[in-house]
Design a protein around this nucleic acid. Structure first.
Lengths: 206, 206, 206, 206
DNA sequence: GATGAATGAGGTTTCATTCAT
DNA sequence: AATGAATGAAACCTCATTCAT
């Protein structure tokens, strides 16, 4: 956690520091990223960083907290709370949509987070034991879908959750690597949902 | 590329070095990984590493080459060459199976490769311009499936390729993180294929 | 060029570093000279050197700049600007005198510079293409002497410049290797000038 | 001194080694020069060098011995032994001529030797206490010239010897840096001798 | 709190030299 | 004697972090 002094900083400066940190960490892995570069880009003096943060890891953790916080803020709270009013696939659509909105507006957070997730040692250092909350979220959603009767009752929830999550990642990655697919975001989502709903096997009726 | 001296080494020693490198790079990100640690674990003297490799990057590249080479060796060449004899989903099944076999027997290569893929700067350093051959592979396979009439003719090949690839990653990850799911590999694959074929929507007939 | 931080240093410390560098480089050739030794002698911490200089070469270049700057400061500017008031040999005498004054007060710079000049590879590394300004200086002076009618009109300017320059080196070397000749500096200079003026052939009149 | 094994080597191989050494040491200063590079260029195996020489310094010393030996071989022995038959300036001319011949045919030895002479620490390491035999040579020659009555009786022998020596260096340097002066070697020598004989002052009679 | 110099652990890399075959 | 891998000292350099002002 940042020191108190960080939160006492004028908002502009605080933001400049965060921006600089995002720039650095989204470009370089944790160990290659340099505090000095962050200080330079933020326009603060050489050791000033340590007025605000315990150390490199402290800043990194904070960035990850921002990520979670931001991520949540993009989900339509109302829909999630009043699940019953919606169908499973409607909800899933909203989840993907929010994921996209988030990624588009916080594109630098995504690579940071991806590097973290694939770096076991770092993950350990940052979180101690890691608990994948995102998978839990999908599990819950799937249970709900089952209960509603929209999904096959014998569907394996754990595995499917993993797969849905994985698809989310690839969705976000597609969106960020702007131009990889020249397709409108909505179209992408709809095609992906169709894939999830119906698979890719050709059916008799089309 | 390793220096000639590396290939002149007795197989045992060469393997010890590679083993040590795999250990180190699968545990730590490229920049945190230490040559010294590799030397120690391989039981060779302080600067000896440089007898065999140009530098850290050189070793890393070599590991990635091994990965590609190994990966390919796990695919049933026969099936891929005589595609026509098989159905699309049979082929996909084989691809997933080979992915799993590979991952089980080379579990340390996977995290190394994942860290690389998520670290843009490193990717750039290692490969210059990166060309995702894996996605191409799936595209080709999908085109084949379309031609065979097993897939919907209006299926978006690029997007679907991305999704299939993404599912492969998560499959491999599941397998490696042994115990995350207590399910037999075959069962996992079959469920995943079912997901791909039919999606998760409940149908009238089942 | 040293970094800004170097010039921000208290004069005393800055001088200690330069002194240490002069000690090291005047004793050892560029590649044998050790940064660590300089740090030790200057009483600064292990990597501190790099706060002030880019690298070894950077420091070395700076020393060479100091040399040029110092060297120039020893010449009687007035005499050189108002050449016309003086005879050629008076001017040459002044040049030699200034050379001696410089060498006596900066005796450690001379060997550094000599090592540089004789080390083609280093010279290349330090200066890229090297332009011998010192020879140009003598050429100009000789042209002046010719114009004044003090020198033979068919004198070869380029060659003579080279020879005068060479004699300067040996003069400086003599002075520095104190005691090699037990003669007063003035006497040395006068004898050398006599050599330059009249050669060593015995003449009819003496 | 090289080991016996070196002299037992077939002449061709011995020469290849010396050639390679000359290449390396004439390009790089003692400490930058690499044994490995010499081995490579000579086409001998990695540690083979140590079959023939004690160490780097041993080879270097040997090269310097070759230099002296070669140098002497270029002087017209006959003239030096029967000095009386010749005039001082004739002898000096021969000295310069031999210097040039030597330098032209052994151009790589010159920079090696120059670097050595300007590197006090190395000189010390190589020779312990250094005795400048070359200056002695000129002193002797000058004494001879005085005795013959060709030089002014009050000429300072030590200083003049130093100057003559210095001019030799610059002469050799000029010759080696081929093209610096586009003048025939003979012309250079004659002009230089004229300089030594008569200085550069314009005389009444021309 | 801000500044920027100071510190030193620690990593990479080079290469002369040794050693086993 | 020849080969070429092995060794390890030692150098350069980076940078997170501390400290004095």
């Amino acid at each position: 956690m940042p020191k108190e002094t960080f939160f006492n900083l004028p908002a502009g400066k605080r933001e400049r520091i965060i921006e600089a940190a995002l720039d650095e960490f989204s470009t370089y892995s944790f160990h290659k990223a340099r505090i000095t570069a962050i200080e330079d880009r933020a326009g603060i003096a050489k050791g000033s960083f340590y007025q605000y943060f315990e150390d490199k890891k402290d800043l990194y953790k904070y960035l990850m907290e921002l990520l979670v916080e931001k991520k949540l803020s993009y989900i339509n709270r109302d829909m999630m709370v009043n699940k019953e009013k919606y169908g499973f696939f409607q909800l899933l659509r909203e989840v993907y949509l929010s994921g996209i909105r988030f990624a588009k507006e916080n594109s630098r957070l995504v690579p940071i987070w991806m590097m973290l997730v694939t770096d076991r040692d770092l993950l350990q250092e940052i979180y101690g034991e890691h608990r994948d909350k995102s998978a839990d979220f999908f599990k819950e959603l799937l249970e709900f879908g089952k209960a509603k009767g929209e999904l096959a009752p014998d569907l394996d929830v754990s595995l499917t959750a993993t797969m849905l999550q994985s698809l989310t990642f690839s969705l976000i990655d597609l969106i960020i690597e702007d131009g990889k697919l020249d397709m409108d975001d909505m179209v992408i989502i709809d095609k992906m949902l169709d894939f999830v709903e119906n698979g890719i096997k050709k059916r008799a009726q089309g």
